[in-house]
Design a protein around this nucleic acid. Structure first.
Length: 369
DNA sequence: ATGCATGAGGT
DNA sequence: CCTCATGCATA
């Protein structure tokens, strides 16, 4: 691997045609605008007590400890402040707002085994590993332009991360800091030129600014490509499977969108960049001489159980944020207490905290770069 | 564009 | 039970 300042993080790959892709054929999304109005909720005070009760001493004096610059953090801080203010005055009349707790969710019988193309990295940012794709002799880059449904046999490939705990100093940082070095234990990657080329300049690839610039360029060029056809984020995701890069399968619209908007973790951005870059180059090349035919109908397969998304109401959400500001990682018991208090399922609360942490991490990183 | 969820790999 | 990469569903 080119640089492994981090243990792990290889792209695990195996058989090429991997990846069961399942896309919602229904997607076609217009977008919406920002929303969310706030409603007052006096439940905050009570909520606070959950956290305040047996609380670890360290967070006492300063509820801001551990918080930082993220926008989210600021919001949380405000929530925490608000809640403290009320703590004394308080008038907690809980409205048991419990809108129907929509915790409904039929569990879909997963129809698609998803095999994440995961770069198993860990450790906080600083990480800058790249995936190292192995070469693929058959590297026939075939159609990758927006096409429709590719009958990808859902063969999973089990990728696995072999970690090598290497020295991972956190040098690098900022643009310009040529870090390089890295004895590439990696070898043979003489495949997709773009990918290979990309890995030559780790610095540039890991530099937040470079990533940002690339994401922007990517978006513009992606849109240009479509012109009359319109290459959507979903198209790109699907097309990736056609770019037969080892270990690289399709991705969802969500991921492409997040890449473009830089809402992925730093490591994730780094891992995806070479792949998207390879696609972009190939797509533009194809666009030159070819023209894509209007695909075939993919139509939605069958009626499987649809997963229902739980929706946490604004008041509850604010309470959660307040708790989070005080303790981002509540214990199982606390989670249970919070869940009960808010009349939410414990798992919903647990997941909310997990997601909140991921989000906060991204924001912290973004804020410092 | 994003919120909530799943799953793999770890601890 | 966590973190991470991702995805489905939805606003």
């Amino acid at each position: 691997m080119s640089m492994s300042m981090y243990p792990s993080d290889k792209m695990k790959m195996s058989a090429p045609g991997c990846f069961p892709g399942r896309y919602s054929p229904t997607y076609r999304g217009p977008d919406q605008m920002r929303r969310c109005m706030t409603n007052p909720s006096s439940r905050l005070l009570e909520d606070a007590s959950i956290m305040c009760n047996s609380w670890s001493p360290r967070t006492n004096g300063d509820i801001f400890s551990g918080l930082n610059d993220g926008l989210l953090s600021r919001a949380e801080a405000l929530a925490a402040v608000d809640m403290q203010k009320h703590q004394s005055s308080h008038a907690a009349h809980q409205q048991m707002t419990q809108q129907l707790k929509h915790d409904v969710m039929y569990h879909h019988s997963m129809g698609a085994p998803q095999r994440p193309l995961q770069t198993k990295n860990m450790f906080q940012m600083h990480g800058m590993d790249n995936l190292d794709l192995m070469s693929d002799p058959s590297g026939s880059m075939t159609t990758l332009t927006p096409m429709t449904e590719t009958p990808i046999s859902s063969s999973h490939h089990q990728l696995h991360g072999s970690y090598h705990s290497m020295n991972h100093m956190m040098s690098h940082h900022h643009h310009g800091g040529p870090l390089s070095g890295h004895t590439p234990g990696s070898h043979h990657s003489a495949m997709a030129a773009a990918v290979a080329a990309a890995s030559l300049h780790p610095d540039q690839d890991t530099d937040p600014r470079e990533l940002e610039a690339f994401a922007e360029r990517f978006k513009q060029r992606r849109i240009k490509l479509g012109k009359y056809n319109c290459v959507t984020q979903a198209d790109v995701g699907k097309a990736l499977a056609n770019l037969k890069l080892p270990g690289v399968g399709a991705l969802s619209q969500s991921t492409i969108c997040r890449f473009e908007s830089l809402t992925l973790s730093h490591n994730n951005m780094i891992a995806l960049k070479p792949i998207l870059q390879a696609w972009l180059e190939e797509a533009e090349a194809q666009a030159k001489n070819k023209r894509r035919d209007p695909d075939a109908p993919s139509v939605l397969p069958h009626g499987e159980k649809k997963r229902k998304r739980t929706s946490i109401a604004a008041p509850e959400k604010r309470s959660l944020e307040a708790y989070f500001a005080v303790q981002p990682r509540p214990s199982g018991e606390k989670i249970a207490a919070i869940a009960e208090k808010l009349d939410l399922k414990k798992n919903v609360v647990r997941v909310w905290f997990c997601n909140q942490r991921q989000k906060q991490k991204r924001m912290k990183f973004a804020a410092q770069h």
